[in-house]
Design a protein around this nucleic acid. Sequence first.
RNA 1: UGCCCGAUGGUGUAACUGGCAACACGUCUGACUCUGAAUCAGAAGAGUCCAGGUUCGACCCCUGGUCGGGCAACCA
Length: 567
Amino acid sequence: MIDKGSEDIKPTEGKSLNFLETIIEEDIRKGKNDGRVHTRFPPEPNGYLHIGHAKSICLNFGLADKYNGKCNLRFDDTNPTKEEQEYVNSIMEDVRWLGFDWEDRLFYASDYFDQLYEWAIKLIKDGKAYVDDQPADLISEQRGVPTRPGIESPFRKRSIEENLELFERMKKGEFPDASKVLRAKIDMASPNMHMRDPVLYRILHSNHHRTGDKWCVYPMYDFAHGQSDYLEGITHSICTLEFEIHRPLYDWFLDNLIESEYRPRQHEFARLNLSYTVMSKRKLLELVKDKYVTGWDDPRMPTISGLRRRGYTPESIRNFADRVGVAKRENVIDVGLLEFSIREHLNLISPRIFAVLDPLKVIITNYPEGKTEELNLENNPEDPNGGNRIVPFSREVYIERDDFMEDPPNKFFRLGPGREVRLKGAYVIKCEDVKKDENGNIIELHCTYDPTTKSGSGDQRKVKGTLHWVSVNHAVDAEVRLYDRLFSKEFPDELENENDDFKNNLNPDSLQVITGKIEPSVKNAKHPDHFQFQRLGYFCVDPDSIPDKLVFNRTVSLKDTWAKMNK
RNA sequence: UGCCCGAUGGUGUAACUGGCAACACGUCUGACUCUGAAUCAGAAGAGUCCAGGUUCGACCCCUGGUCGGGCAACCA
């Protein structure tokens, strides 16, 4: 992003602008903030990032990139009772993994605690803030309800001197938690609840992950966010819709604190929702804490770390974020779009291999015993530089159990008694006999092969079906974790009644662990290698995997027209 | 009875300063195929929440409704 000149602003050729781009381009045209574009991604380090945050990250960093600006990473760490270093670390890892770089602009709201404290004093001195001794429930009661004005606190008209002294003592830790707060003096009758003398500072004798025990009072979000934006020179402060109502307060603080012309401006967009999952941090935390999943990075979680472990790539997530768009209306994105995005990318980059997940043994009766052929197969037809690999073929192979039917319908293009199929990369085989155990279960198939049909030999015979397979004597066992959607309901937040719980909508079959038979070329595969298990889906090596015991996660299945036909 | 926001095919987003609605996913056909994948070709699907108004002409502007979401933590 680099070339300077008149093309600094990448013009949006043909493609239409989203509403934020429209605003930004207009601001630039008008020369607002000297045409600067400076955004920020401001997570609270109280949990792991999820796909919704990914949208915000792509938006903020993407806008900065598009308009030759900068984007800061800023931790909104004003509440030490909820925030932890572990979360800070995971967030930085996730943002980086997604492919974004905040360069030297890593900030914390806690960097500004001194300045914020000074600003609070200024407000007191200006008669615009006061210390309230009332308990939280009383304050809340006096605040009224949206349809009725609140009433003023009896402490509202404390003298400036007394306020100054009390606030100083609050800071020094002379009062217990929750015994006093500092409030702005705005308007208890405002139709906007947030303007009814909002709390600026509360007393919290709590160790902060960065400032330790230095502070006994901590600023509220509203008193920290806009000022932090201001201090960092943010021009466009992009947040989600629920903060829209906060904007007058955001502006009020700046207008009452700052002399200069420059102002950051808050803009709100609709957060991302995804079908078949939940997105609230509280609910995700609950799933982790109560062990419904193995952790924040459980591959079923919509967290960035979960998606990463599941086998999603940064590219696929960025493309997804691009495709969902940005607007101000509530939305629920079909999880199918996410799945499309990852298939699209993995199709391009994943080596193809053979893996049989539900094995049925096939004995090729006319194939020489003890013989092994080393077949040279293409890794990825989509990638000319993908190279080749050797796959051993022998007299006994496994095929997928549901690739055989004893009494198949016409549309079944696979193996059945007397039918022929091609073993991909090898030969055409014909099913001659079906062996069963005493209970009638099919235990193996006896087939014959046609030696003239070897792949690549120029044989022209067409058969309807092509199956993947693995040589029995060469197969490698691997644990395969088959993941499915975490919830069985499209909108898991939608409850039947008051006693219902979103956890009742969990999909009991979201994880199935099996042992699969995999071709030997993957023996040395390691995390985070991606593969396409041919005809099955995309899989990646899990971090749990060790050389003697491979573990694969199913990222997403291949589109399956056959399965759909049978619905 | 308050304030703020929103409303376009199944889903999500477009439609330049007003000129009868486009793209993506999904769905359905068909072609191709040594992955029932991918790819390719095509189709169906909304008349833009409703009612008025302005205009030669409105998704777009105005008025009034309806519906949906948000706002009453010492959370962010």
